[in-house]
Design a protein around this nucleic acid. Structure first.
Lengths: 193, 193
DNA sequence: ATTTTAATTGACTGGTCAATCAACAAAACG
DNA sequence: CGTTTTGTTGATTGACCAGTCAATTAAAAT
């Protein structure tokens, strides 16, 4: 049943299936066959559209990053004050699908991949730089050393993310993570407690 | 050349080779054969002593954690003041072999494994709890909410670790990471700047 | 000196998987 | 209506690998 325009549909389905399967298995040890079956196509088609397993995973990561980017932009646009901008960036990191097990799994494996895959490393650097840059911009009116504060917040976000994602029990607590960052921001920007 | 007492030697060599190979490949995608060859033995011997690849990797992780634990204990013992104790814990995290690429790779893959391997998850939780507990204890005399500060510092350590380990260029800068934590501690404990 | 025990390996097995390719189906096009 | 384009897959290949096992060596124990 070859209809024209299937390419976009299939690519989307394959990317989503990739995220889903990585989440289910918890690692990159998923076969192209499993992913393809979940997407309802043959493994040959996955190779046809993406060329290789690596490309498929990179596409999945790009999808997650662009979803995150969109959320960040939306939050920034709606924020009126510098502090609201900071909070919006933090919320973008802890909100959305970011705490869903599949996305957590994708992130952790992305870190692993970034050690060796130049493409993955580049993607990760872009994300990291953009976050710090956005945070710096938002923090500039609020403190003496906005770059240092931005870097600290960025690290705090990553650390809280990992700690909550791999926490002892229960679902990750986004609210608690955001509160911790907020408390640091209060301190760093001299807000009375 | 079967001499008695080889077991400990071989196990050590295999554990070190495991860390080394994971570092070289950047992922858990290393074969038992590669590890064994690096250790100078046959793959059959690796299975003989460890039973499975998973066990071998867990043993490697335990080695890293125990090295870290020893360093933390040494630092704590030498520290006279609460603040010195905090600094010692931070230094234990950023010092030693922890920033060597192989150890970084092991950590990242350990995170991935902890999502699905109960043993790895348990190990990680023990490490995380102990760190927070040590930090809390050290922070108690210095601030009103030592638990919150300890959690924040722990997250900061993890986040800085990842960000520096996967940084844009050059070797990870342990000094900068430690300075960032120190600045937060100054803020949180009301030290004058 | 013989037996036991620890150390060690080569060879093998059963299975898995990424990637390729030739071929088939149906829509679009002229 | 025939041809081109797009979509799709089954079957295959070539390679790799974890884990097993039977066999070998030499030290240690009796």
């Amino acid at each position: 049943m070859p209809r024209v325009g299937m390419m976009a549909l299939r690519k989307d389905a394959l990317v989503n299936a990739t995220i889903g399967e990585i989440g289910r298995r918890g690692s990159l040890d998923v076969t192209v066959g499993q992913i393809a079956r979940t997407a309802g196509v043959s493994s040959a088609l996955a190779h046809h559209y993406f060329g290789s397993k690596d490309e498929l995973f990179l596409a999945a990561m790009r999808a997650i990053l662009s979803e995150f980017g969109a959320e960040a932009r939306r939050g920034l646009a709606a924020a009126g004050t510098p502090r609201a901008r900071l909070d919006a960036l933090v919320r973008a990191n802890f909100g959305g699908r970011n705490f869903q097990p599949e996305v957590v799994a994708a992130w952790l494996n992305f870190y692993v991949l970034a050690q060796t895959q130049p493409q993955a490393a580049r993607l990760l650097r872009v994300y990291q730089r953009r976050l710090v840059s956005n945070l710096t911009h938002a923090a500039r009116p609020l403190c003496a050393d906005p770059v240092a504060v931005a870097r600290t917040v960025a690290a705090l976000i990553d650390g809280l993310y990992i700690r909550h994602a791999l926490a002892d029990a229960g679902p990750p607590d986004a609210a608690a993570a955001m509160a911790t960052v907020a408390r640091y921001l209060d301190l760093a920007t001299g807000v009375a407690r």
